[in-house]
Nucleic acid binder design. Structure first.
Lengths: 237, 237
DNA sequence: CGGTATTTTGAGCAGTGTCAAAGACGGTGG
DNA sequence: CCACCGTCTTTGACACTGCTCAAAATACCG
């Protein structure tokens, strides 16, 4: 029994609550730790995936493609996130998973994960909550792309990333790294790389964000939230 | 014990499978049947909702609002759909529910529903699958609004509605009613009512759809699917 | 039959996309 | 440690999709 899943258990517990036997059962799961290079596929869209994956270190996106190859990033995943919950119960994954940075990922055999859930109702319930929150985040993203202008979309995306990172104590000293190119930020907000660039520079000019390479600092999170029409309730943190 | 929930059980079973005692337990749920007039709120965004609601007859949308009042429709719900699954386990609903037509809705006390799930793992699992499919549909909608042009968005939306209605045997003779104004169709696709109008007329002119008032007929579903870049896998029907 | 909501149409415009090129950055091998 | 190379960012000019505003036509409902 190793403790690679310790932080995952902590996450699950916030959706829980789990009792000690539940936690022990998760920690007793057979796990293989795998590493992926940056810019490499973890799961391909349409795969019938065998294992349940949890991101331990690094960043990953979940993304979909249109018929003519345009990309939409549907989630930016951070350490502690499950990467392919749907594949546990659905026949195939409707989206691909791409490692953005070098990433270490815990891989749990599908049958072990399913067995865990069916024998531990509290864990099943925590997974259900996770799925519900994931859907809620998706709905907010839909609102963001459907009804906000370019600057607000980018601001909102940044606010969400900050909020989720902070909830996991992954931001230290107010500075954080956004592990995305501007092209990818466009794919996450329904914009073009060029236009994302203009929006970022505009936001720097107006003092909404401070940016140096891919590391960001937010002078006033309140101001950024206002610019992005961001209210955090939908994250259920 | 009435059978108002019979069709809901049938739906659940497709996500199941449920055994007879599971089904009996659902049917034994205390239910109040309520009716709502068209254009009337069933749940307001942010409500701490007491009851679990299932749409029995009519149509409803789930929708979110931006800070300055723009609306995004995140789901068009049809008979058999649960309307507020998140509120069972999350503290509040992140979106409102609006009856589009006169609607009859089954209302199950929250505690009864929760008790049902925690005592019947198979039902909990079916609800989890439901949540996963709902999230998958949300991701496809995000791709649709982020990366497809106006005509494709409308075509894709129509294809999805047809596919879901057909899966419940709610389309007879190839003609169906879209219970939305063009304004609402715009809110569902991230477009303006005016532009939706132009797209619909263009699609009629090119023979992709036949429309008379709010009733539609699709001459060639294959052609419409092509126009909307629609592949049905993500619905997991 | 009148009133209201919805659809339709037109004209003009704004926001975002496209294309292309230059500049900056970062990683790698020598 | 430096030079090189590929990727990413930045900038400019321009095109175009989809939005705004406004008014007319039509459909729906009591």
């Amino acid at each position: 029994v190793s403790d690679v899943l310790a932080s995952f258990v902590a996450q699950l517990d916030t959706y829980g609550p789990l009792d000690d036997s539940d936690k022990a059962a998760v920690l007793a799961l057979p796990v293989i730790v795998r590493t992926f290079l940056s810019e490499t596929y973890v799961v391909r869209q349409g795969d019938v995936e065998g294992a349940f994956l949890i991101l331990l270190r690094g960043f990953a996106t979940r993304q979909k493609l249109t018929g003519d190859g345009a990309r939409q990033i549907v989630s930016l995943d951070i350490p502690g996130d499950p990467l392919n919950l749907p594949s546990l119960f659905l026949s195939s994954v409707d989206h691909g998973v791409l490692a953005l940075t070098n990433a270490t990922i815990a891989s749990v055999p599908r049958q072990s994960a399913i067995h865990l859930l069916t024998t531990h109702p509290a864990i099943m319930q925590a997974f259900l909550k996770w799925a519900l929150v994931d859907a809620s985040i998706g709905r907010e993203a839909l609102l963001n792309q459907g009804r906000r202008d370019a600057q607000a979309r980018v601001a909102h995306f940044l606010c969400e990333h900050v909020a989720r990172m902070e909830a996991r104590n992954l931001i230290i000293g107010g500075v954080f790294t956004l592990p995305l190119t501007q092209e990818q930020l466009g794919d996450a907000t329904g914009l073009t790389a060029v236009h994302v660039n203009r929006m970022l520079n505009k936001m720097v000019a107006s003092g909404l964000i401070a940016q140096k390479g891919r590391s960001f600092k937010i002078p006033s999170i309140a101001a950024l939230r206002q610019a992005g029409d961001f209210r955090a309730q939908y994250l259920f943190l």
